[in-house]
Simulated assay, not measured.
Amino acid sequence: MAAVAVLGLAATGCGLKPASQFAPDVTGKSIQAGSLKGATLSVTSKNFTEQILLGKITVLALKAAGAKVVDKTNVQGSINSRKAIERGEADMGWEYTGTAWITYMGKDKPIPDPQQQYDAVRKADLAQHRIDWLSYAPFNNTYAMAVTGPNAKKYGLKSLSDMKKVPPAQRTFCLETEFYSRVDGFAGMLKAYGIPKPPSGQVKKLDTGVVYDATAKGTCLFGEVFDTDGRIPALHLTTLADDRHFFPIYNPALTVRHSVMQRYPQIADIEKQIAAKLSTKVMRKLNAKVDVEGQEPVLVARDWMKSEGLLE
């Protein structure tokens, strides 16, 4: 795909283009048709591409199992999506272990082992909020800082520690608003790597989807990205290694209100089939179909589920 086409489509992703509530009719294959017949269930998600895709996959899976599904995906911000589940306004949504541990549970030290982090989050969330965590997917959608290939070569940038090699006046950052304010975000990263906070004029707060394009164009030297985003390779960006392991593990899992799981325990079997297939490679490919190629998330979700034998 020509570079101009990639750049032109980049701004449409990560929730900047509203997600349609349309869901095509589907028939289960490995997902047992009729296993949720008579159930009415609602699904929420945050408002960036990966979350919308995960939400649409869940909507289709529940629909294939015979449930009536209320699509509440594409909610602005992590907190709002999470609160919808806590308040009973939505039954379920995908969440990341690191986000829950740091942001919702107020912990200041992540657990570096993925399984131990998941186990700790699952136990705490059930006890504190009556929310169940189902099987987690093997990919880690961690935050990362990206640079262009030429800038990586110019300054010798391979890891976040290398940011110190850049003269302070040239340390410019493109960040999404949520990352700027999160405990596991910008300020914490700078502190962990011993980098003074730059003047406000060197930090641009942008919508998530705009950060990638701005970084590729050189608007900022460093751009905050999600490691599973398909625009990283499409825009020829390079991510810097988190060599001091500041960022938590962000394995995703479907979180469901406990009362819902008690009534419909078969949801766990459906979700387990899905989670096991979601590798980093798969997620980057699916994200790219939306953010780079401009495809509709629910159709990307359906086609992938068919290719994996989940749907007919």
Rank of each mutant, 00 (worst) to 15 (best):
T97S: 13
T99R: 05
W94S: 01
A127H: 07
A100L: 12
P112G: 05
A124P: 02
Y96R: 09
W94G: 02
Y118T: 00
Y118M: 04
G106D: 05
D108W: 08
R122H: 10
W94D: 00
T103C: 10
Y118L: 04
A127E: 13
P114Q: 05
K109P: 03
D125H: 15
A100D: 00
P114M: 02
I102D: 02
G93R: 03
P112H: 07
T99Y: 14
K107E: 13
W101K: 01
D108Y: 08
K123Y: 10
K107L: 09
P110K: 07
G106Q: 10
Q116R: 14
I111Y: 00
D113P: 02
G106S: 08
Y104I: 05
V121H: 04
D113Q: 10
K107D: 02
Q128H: 12
T103S: 15
Y96I: 03
Q117S: 14
K107N: 15
Y118I: 00
T99I: 14
A120C: 07
Q115T: 13
P112S: 08
Q117I: 00
K109V: 14
L126V: 09
V121P: 04
T97P: 01
K107I: 08
P112E: 09
I102H: 01
M105W: 08
T99W: 11
Y96K: 03
T97A: 14
G106L: 10
P110E: 07
Y96H: 11
V121T: 06
Y96W: 15
Y96A: 07
P112A: 06
I102T: 02
M105P: 05
L126I: 11
A127L: 09
